[in-house]
Amino acid sequence: MSLVVAKKLKKTYIAGDITVNAIQGVDFSIESASFVSFVGPSGSGKSTLLNMIGCLDPPTEGALQVADSDITRLDRREAARFRGENIGFVFQDFNLIPVLTVFENVEYPLQMVQNWPASKRRKRVQDLLGAVGMADQGNKYPSQISGGQKQRVAVARALVTNAKLVLADEPTANLDRTTATRIIDLMKNMRDEFGTTFIFSTHDPKVVKNAEIIYTLEDGRLKESRSGNGGHHV
């Protein structure tokens, strides 16, 4: 079953007189529980594509389905609701909320987005912190942990709501290579454990290798798709 299906997807930015064709008609489909990476040079459209899949930016043209929903014509509220229910995000800059503890950061989507009752939240958050290896750091604030640890917390936060899809735009760009590899490994483990689909973008060839399916973008066009370590051809 395909979780993400894109057909003739286009995104054009118009800023004054300048028109940028950021994505110029791409077709792809991503299966459930796959581990996918988009790579390509700066400006090739990776972020643009991920933002469209993540329901943050509507496509200009073409069809885009995520989890069997047409997401091309959602208004702001509907898009927010859809993201809250289906998609987890991991950001380049970790983006934890500084005034909340590690535990509270992971709890945030359950409490403020999905309105879980307190009794159920506690166990779920603890489970996720355990899964990312941060079980004993729950009371620390983001400023008290390392970058790699922050990204682990961010992965836990993205997964805590049982999202079908986790999008990560350059999740390792602010990490050293060893830590970066560990984060990618962690995400892959999470995919294995929870069956969540992961889509991430990166510049780093070493990191790319760990993806199962690699899409290469150039000038807003899909150049090739190949399999990475242990993956299979598409």
Binding site: R76, R77, A80, R83, I87, G88, I97
Partner: peptide, 15 residues
């Protein structure tokens, strides 16, 4: 940035 983050992960505008 924080607003962007919480909005992206699905916090509704009213909240």
């Amino acid at each position: 940035n924080e607003i962007g983050t919480i909005a992206a992960i699905g916090t509704l505008p009213a909240r």
